[in-house]
Design a binder for these strands. Structure first.
Lengths: 371, 371
DNA sequence: GATTCGCGTGAAAACGTTATCACGCCATGG
DNA sequence: CCATGGCGTGATAACGTTTTCACGCGAATC
């Protein structure tokens, strides 16, 4: 069971004829491996002369530090996990693109996972990412309560939340001003003379749905238009929900003359329902959709939309995460971005410029607010 | 420079109050770490009694093997890189979804990167994935020649190519039957009585564009309709290309009465151009698009489309990759999937069932062909 | 009844890093 | 002049696995 003399083991070839290890660089530069490591991690800690030798050796040998070894030893990897509810919703993919750009530039790798709108799957995926040893996670939560995410918040892992914010969750997060966006959209319809303005909303457990309803109510109140409960339909934020909702509205004894749809997929469903019923847009029903999408101009008529700076939402989230990795103890930040009303034909001929803020130029970002 | 006595080093806490290491499991089960490792890697190599003890210990300690250590030691990780040209093209995201599902089930992690249709970026991204030590790469190449990808093919890395196949590239790959798909689409238009059928195609360096043109020509030839060179427009497979192409076609002295658009984004552009010019679809111009998209039914009129089994393309690719990881030396395989013509209003009232193969049921996949 | 074989197990090397400690050196201060 | 301190460098432990080798043991073989 015990024995004395040392053994000679057959070393396994590493991954392949792969490139240099830190040791080969060290030999080539005639320094120790510690110096090589330092030359990369903290360049000014090593004398200029040696640093140069190391850099050159690394270049000629085409040295790429092993991420696995680095992760194993330091316990942290340069990878960031991104979890979205649905890969096929273009809003989310645009957000991911924004994240990707920032992360790429910072030398991080992006691990993407889709939860497919499934709570169990989301949990599973978050666990995997954590086991994978990512440096942080950016995600769009499905659930509305913090409890579902307690395990994600465990210290070594940094978290940034996008779009929907679970109640009581303390974390950096990025949202858009849903209240103001919707208010602007509804006000636009009111300005065009509509009085029976309906709202196709989503599940109230989503903060976005709640906020968009608030914006809707604010706009009506400000215009002195009484709220009609039957004009608010709550769908599921999916295509079918928009379809069903629009059909319900069309069947009302007093049909709305304008509808604001609170989500991009539902907008598609609403369009389908209107076309099917041969209702003319915008003459019989004017339409405004939340979320500007690539296909908005190809719809017939082109869609008036409340655009979110999707890509910028992603970049902001990535910035937030990188900032927190650098300063783990700073207070949580909440970045809120503005929406932009893009007026096209589906809301009717614009008789005057929309009553939102004057075109704000390229800057949408509001000053960060510490929550 | 040299010294004799051993040193006591302060051990760094690993990633955090993280869970058990293999050592703790071993202690708890009163076996060696080797046995624990074996109990997972090759269960039948360890006696049932010990295996049970190990399994129980792992469960109570909530043991998750460190991926980093595993990757470092074995030189291969359970991660797969996926590279697509554009994150915001729903065709690609649907493919990714298919990949994701298979990979997830097999316990692999998906590293997604978008090349943003940029060759340099693509190269960069592939390098990163290789450095990351992924077990394999599934990708939709931007370039048409093998040379651009020679570095990816280096042995330890397995590659599966999707959609477009660079010439001379020897690798597993998955495509759809573009020739047959287009042929069916054009034939459908011919069956409806059209004779001036145009094609909005893409860059010929893409194998997909070439094949779709072939299908177009085959259909015309089969119907005895002479080819008109001015009816084939080659765009860039982006929205703008479809818009420009359609405008060009509309400006022809002898305008086509039907158009097949060879790509989803170009279809959106074509719709926009038609709406702008107030051309009635399908009365003045009938339309068929390659690629069925979620929004196809929301267009006005709903789009007749040549659908690709996008998600299935992804699963097939993932299957291929897993197969190759298991059997590195098997011959390369080429899986070709069928398309499905979905007739909607944009091609005009279907006076008779389309002349494609009879509805094939849920099975699209053709028997794999070794290339 | 001695040899061979196979099987299950444990000890320990190795993977490629990072981070700690110790050491030699030179400058500084008493 | 000697003690103190800082700085640059090298040697090396440690991270948590996988995998090789050796060993003990019981069964099969001659």
């Amino acid at each position: 069971m015990t024995k004395k003399r040392p053994r000679a083991h057959a070393p396994r070839r590493p991954a392949a004829g792969r490139t240099a290890t830190i040791k080969r660089v060290a030999d080539h530069a005639r320094v120790s491996i510690a110096t090589v490591s330092r030359a990369f991690a903290d360049p000014q800690a090593v004398s200029p002369e040696l640093r140069l030798r190391v850099e050159e050796a690394a270049r000629t040998l085409n040295y790429q530090p092993s991420r696995a070894a680095r992760a194993l030893r330091s316990g942290t990897s340069r990878a960031v996990g991104v979890v979205i509810p649905d890969l096929e919703n273009p809003f989310f993919t645009a957000v991911v693109r924004g994240i990707d750009i920032v992360l790429q530039a910072a030398g991080y790798t992006l691990l993407l996972a889709s939860a497919n709108e499934d709570t169990a799957r989301e949990r599973n995926v978050l666990e995997t990412l954590r086991a994978e040893g990512v440096a942080g996670i950016i995600f769009v939560p499905i659930n509305a309560t913090r409890d579902a995410y307690r395990h994600v918040l465990a210290p070594p892992l940094h978290t940034v939340v996008i779009d929907r914010l679970p109640s009581n969750l303390r974390a950096d997060h990025v949202t858009v001003d849903n209240v103001e966006g919707t208010r602007a959209g509804v006000t636009h319809l009111l300005d065009l003379g509509h009085r029976d303005v309906a709202l196709l909303s989503g599940p109230l457990r989503h903060s976005t749905a709640k906020e968009r309803e608030q914006g809707y109510e604010q706009a009506l109140r400000a215009a002195g238009v009484p709220l009609r409960a039957d004009l608010v339909y709550r769908g599921d934020f999916r295509e079918g929900g928009g379809y069903d909702g629009m059909r319900t509205l069309l069947a009302l004894p007093r049909r709305p003359t304008a509808v604001l749809v609170a989500n991009n997929l539902m907008t598609l469903g609403a369009f389908r329902a209107l076309h099917e019923a041969r209702v003319r847009i915008p003459d019989e029903v004017a339409l405004v959709g939340f979320d500007d999408m690539p296909w908005a101009t190809s719809l017939n008529p082109p869609l008036t939309a409340i655009g979110q700076p999707s890509q910028e939402i992603g970049s902001a989230a990535a910035d937030l995460l990188l900032g927190r990795i650098a300063h783990p103890d700073r207070t949580f930040r909440h970045v809120m971005l503005e929406t932009t009303l893009v007026v096209r034909a589906s809301s009717g001929t614009a008789v005057r410029p929309p009553r939102t803020r004057p075109a704000a130029g390229p800057h949408h970002r509001r000053a960060p607010v510490t929550s």
